[in-house]
Structures are given as structure tokens and as C-alpha cells.
């Protein structure tokens, strides 16, 4: 008889929604099992089954029936979760039968989480008052766009100015110059690298393309980002020499173009891009030009997370901006990413 303590069932306690979830059962190889039933929730689907052959399993209504494993003592499954409510607890039930008798019955739970970005305030008009004294500048902003993340997952946000927007965002600092020079340098060197490693050519070009033209978080781009990054990591793992060459290119291009200013600026950007309630705002470096003439800002807020999930972009509508003088305003100054209670 197989006792409970002879069966080891693994399911992680938690997982970011949209990512893969491993699951396995290990039991004493000498024990023959007639049937295993794995019942899982609708928010999860099976991606792969390990150590089982065709004809020895079936899936019906989110229940997996396994009559035989290839090598006794092990069953592996890879699940993938779908996007659902921001935080849910789900159960997977495992039943094992031997000689038509239920000999093992256990429920394993997993918490599935994700970010939940909500807009609390979208002003239609924002007035900017720049108070310049002899020694200081003080900026008063009449109203802010209030965004909060009430989920447990980190939200990565970027703002896209639409075609019809009279105000466009841009990068005012030396970091942009550095970035351009850096990527041009990398691109040149990558051309040579692809000669040695033609099998990675498409990955390398896609990588440079992301660097030169940072994508918006739309489904196709996110899928491509995921593919390229995972592809590169895979390539580094399988080919150490390629990794070393690649790292050398990045490092030499970096050192060639870096300056003290970049070092300081990059830390400032870093500090301005992260917010307390698990928000990373990647536009921290960018500014907009405001002036005494009222102008329309027409934007969409794009959201993704650490599992490259795509969320519906938030249309911020028309926001009219007016300032008492022409001024370069940091984009983050328009936002309030205040903490809200996640409990």
C-alpha cells in the first residue's frame, strides 16, 4: 500500500499569472499505480506532460486521467495560468488509485497574482505654475493623473503620445545621446559577431532593434520581447563563447560612451522610475514642453508585467496643459503614483 508519506507532490505556493507552473509527483518506483486523476481549475491549462506516452492519458473538462507512466515513480506536468482576477487562490486535486481503491487524495493550493493598475483621477485641464526666484525654481501643478497598482505583481508602465497629440514626449538629457551612440556601436559590432555565429543572427538583430526602437507594450511586441530575451538566455547557456563575445561587445561599447554625467543621470532615472506600490514607470527620463498656449496632450498608458502579459492600454483622453511660461516638464511630474492599501 502506498502511504501518504511515500508520495511527494510539488506545486509552488504562488505564481505570477500568465507564467508557467511546474508540478510533479514522485512515489516509490516499486509501487504500481492504476490511475491518477489530476483535477485543475479553468484558469490553468496543461502545457506539457512528462513521462507519459500517447494512449495512456486523456483530458476531459479540466481533469487529467493517467493510466500509466513510462517509468514508474514519476509524473511531471507543466501548467500555464491565464490572466484572471488580480489575486486568486486555486486548488489542484490529486487522486491516486491502486486496485480500484483510492489510496491517495490531496489538494494543493496556489495563489495566482498580477498587477492591477487603476486610474483614480484623469484631469482634463492641468495648469503648471513655474515660480522662478533668483535662486530656485518651484513648480506647482494644479491636478495630477492618479494611478495606483492594487495588485501584488509589479506593473511596468509606459506612456505613448498619440499622433493627434500636440505635445510629444522626448528625452532631454545626455543619456539619450549616450543611448544612441551606444546602440550604434553595438550594432556595428553585432554585424561582425553574426559572421561567427550565424545561428544567432536573427536574435542579435532583434536585440539591437529593441535597443534602438524601444517597443510599446502591445501583444505582438511583448511576444517578440519574450522570444528574443528567452532566446538570448538560451543561447548564452548553450554557448559560453558566444556569451563572452556578446558581453565583451556590450561592455566595450558601454565604457567607450559612458561619462560621469551618464552615471549620475542613470541613477536619477533609476530613482524616478520606481514607485512604492510596485510600479516601474519607464518614461522617467522623458519630458514634455509646456507653454503659455494651451495645448492638448493625447496619450495612452501601456502596461505589462514580469511575465510579459499584455493589459488593455488606458486611454487618458484629452488633457489640456497650460503653463505660465515655456518650460520642460518631466513626464513623471504629471503623475501621482501614490500608495493605496493592497490589503
Amino acid at each position: 500500500m502506498v502511504g501518504d508519506n511515500m508520495i511527494n507532490v510539488y506545486l509552488p505556493n504562488n505564481s505570477l499569472q500568465g507564467s508557467e507552473i511546474p508540478f510533479y509527483l514522485i512515489w516509490q518506483g516499486s509501487e504500481n499505480i492504476d490511475l491518477m486523476i489530476i483535477e485543475y481549475p479553468d484558469d490553468i491549462e496543461i502545457k506539457e506532460i512528462y513521462n507519459v506516452s500517447e494512449g495512456n492519458f486523456r483530458i476531459e473538462n479540466s481533469i487529467l486521467y493517467i493510466s500509466k507512466v513510462d517509468v514508474n515513480g514519476y509524473l511531471g506536468i507543466k501548467f500555464v495560468s491565464k490572466l484572471t482576477k488580480p489575486l486568486v487562490k486555486k486548488n489542484i486535486q490529486v487522486k491516486i488509485y491502486k486496485n480500484n481503491q483510492l489510496i491517495y487524495n490531496e489538494v494543493k493550493s496556489i495563489r495566482l497574482f498580477r498587477p492591477e493598475v487603476e486610474l483614480y483621477n484623469i484631469p482634463q485641464h492641468i495648469s503648471i505654475n513655474v515660480l522662478e526666484s533668483k535662486n530656485t525654481i518651484k513648480i506647482n501643478i494644479s491636478d495630477k493623473i492618479k494611478v495606483a497598482n492594487s495588485g501584488e505583481g509589479t506593473a511596468v508602465l509606459t506612456l505613448k503620445c498619440l499622433e493627434e497629440s500636440q505635445i510629444k514626449k522626448y528625452d532631454p538629457m545626455g543619456i539619450d545621446e549616450f543611448r544612441k551612440k551606444f546602440w550604434n556601436d553595438v550594432e556595428k559590432k553585432i554585424y561582425n559577431l553574426k559572421e561567427t555565429y550565424p545561428e544567432y543572427a536573427s536574435l542579435l538583430f532583434a536585440f539591437v532593434d529593441f535597443g534602438k526602437n524601444p517597443p510599446v507594450f502591445e501583444k505582438s511586441a511583448l511576444a517578440k520581447i519574450k522570444e528574443v530575451f528567452e532566446g538570448l538566455i538560451g543561447a548564452f547557456e548553450e554557448n559560453e563563447a558566444f556569451f563572452e563575445e556578446f558581453a565583451r561587445i556590450i561592455l566595450t561599447s558601454y565604457l567607450k560612451n559612458i561619462s560621469i554625467v551618464t552615471e549620475l543621470e542613470s541613477f536619477l532615472i533609476y530613482l524616478k522610475s520606481v514607485y512604492e506600490n510596485k510600479i516601474i514607470f519607464i518614461d522617467a527620463v522623458n519630458v514634455i514642453k509646456v507653454s503659455t498656449t494651451p495645448m492638448k496632450l493625447r496619450t495612452k498608458l501601456y502596461i505589462t508585467d514580469f511575465a510579459y502579459n499584455e493589459y488593455k492600454p488606458i486611454d487618458l483622453g484629452d488633457i489640456t496643459l497650460i503653463s505660465n511660461k515655456e518650460f520642460e516638464l518631466p513626464l513623471y511630474a504629471l503623475f501621482d503614483f501614490g500608495i493605496i492599501n493592497r490589503g
Partner: peptide, 30 residues
Amino acid sequence: DALINKNVSRESFGDEQYEYWMVAQFKHLN
């Protein structure tokens, strides 16, 4: 990669302690 499935948690859950799980499992044993 064809022999082993590797998964790690993409993000930790909760604020108190950051914990990340890791799993290695054979895809093909026979």
C-alpha cells in the same frame, strides 16, 4: 533544454520576505 523543464518564479509574492521557487524536472525519463 529538450531533456529538462526548468521553471522559476518570475516575481516573489508578498512584502515581508522575498522568496522565489525553482523547479527542475525531466521531460523524458525512459
